[in-house]
Amino acid sequence: MTTLDLQTIGLREVNTTLQSAELNRYTITNPMGGHAIACGLQGNLDVTIEGHAGFYCAGMNKDATVTVQGHVGVGVAENMMSGTVRVTGNASQSAGATAHGGLLIIEGDASSRCGISMKGVDIVVGGSVGHMSGFMAQAGNLVICGDAGEALGDSIYEANIYVRGSVESLGADCEEKTMDAEHLDALSKLLKSANMDADAGSFKRYGSARTLYNFHPDNAGDY
């Protein structure tokens, strides 16, 4: 394992090292809320950030596993393609924005617009999420073990949103859906891979009413 002290070597050196890494385990110390830490990683890396990170942490991640032992600012795992990003604390706004794949786990609360425009990522939040979460979500799963704020899933396309607690209000074109065996199975697997101790049967599922865009049900399999 290699330790990279962000305050000593700087952000550019940290990210350059990780982006061209051959060793597979790294620890980043003294993040001090810095922006864009561990961005653009591709490969079988295991990176731990000891402390709180700032905006856009672990963005564009591909294959790597990034663990933040603390809180993160705006846009964690933005545009992630694959891999795993775990945050042990809270996340600020727009967690997992536009992410195409992989697994984002936030053990604490996520703020507003969690999973905005998500395109295939799986997001599991141990706590609650703020307003406008799942806004314009296109694909993937957003799992909320706590409560959801106002306008959940506003203008949603084809993602699944699972909520265990209360929903303050649903956004435009978002509605409650039936929880079928396939959804229970998928949710159970997601909770297990996120190490969340929660019963899939205690969740409700929400999704798109499909009235806001030009959608033909015969094409559902293509989404």
Binding site: M32, G33, G34, H35, H52, G54, F55, H71, G73
Partner: peptide, 8 residues
Amino acid sequence: TEYRAIAT
């Protein structure tokens, strides 16, 4: 506005 201002 950002956590980095609190980090010290």
